[in-house]
Amino acid sequence: MRKTKFSEANNSLSIGLKSKKIAIPYLIWILIFTILPIFLLMQYAFTNNQGNFTFANIERFFNPLYLGIMWHSIRMATMATVICFFLGYPIAYILSQKAYKDKTILLFLFVVPMWMNFLVRTYAWLFILGFNGVLNNILRFFGFEPIRLLFTDGAVLLGLVYTFLPFMIFPIYSSLQKIDERIIEAARDLGSNRLQLFFRIIFPLSLPGIASALTMVFMPAVATFLISNILGGGQYFLIGNLIEQQFLTVGNRHFGSALALIMFALIILCNVIFSYLSKEEKE
């Protein structure tokens, strides 16, 4: 009897070890592609060309020019997130309704653009918004003067909204779908009309989805440099463009790393705030 017990214990121990062994390749992956780059970033950010420790790169950021760019990035990302929310929530809500529950084709149509190359999609806007683009040609056809659409805040905002809208729809859609039909029936049973049902029951219950949707749109939007580069023109600066420039054009890895680190801190901060929001709702 004792012998079997011992061997059983031994067995479970070896299973434990095995499962740890399975994780090893992933740990190595994380080490190489997550932990190591962060350390490299920190090393560059806190040293100068001579390799001496310094805060100068971080301090340099607190210059009205760079703070202005940061502020502009946050403003654009916030606006994009807000627009995505007001466009995305109704879409998610409609798709989650009973009548559409079996019609996955609609949901599929929202996914399809995500499968196409992101650059191709963004370049397509050049041809639509350009001075000789589709929209201006339509204006000319009706005898209007062409207007500058491309290389404006509006164009960048449009690019952001267009690219990140699906990231707003899906988390909200999935949280709306999870709401128990009986809870909605109970609310109707207790006298709520459609508006009361929405604002007192459905909206509060979709808050966790909203929180993750906001994170998923805001964070990539604040860090983007390709959309602003293509639709905003070469002189358009968001924080992402500034970092890109420091690395690829100016060749100042130290300041670039400092900026990337600040960006990283901002993203972590947002994440903490949003996850706190969704957690509070779950309690």
């Binding site: 128990d180 009986r182 809870i183 029936e185 109970a186 609310a187 029951i201 509060p204 219950l205 808050l207």
Partner: peptide, 8 residues
């Protein structure tokens, strides 16, 4: 049947 209380 499953009470359907409002969880929030």
């Amino acid at each position: 049947q499953n009470y359907a209380l409002f969880p929030h």
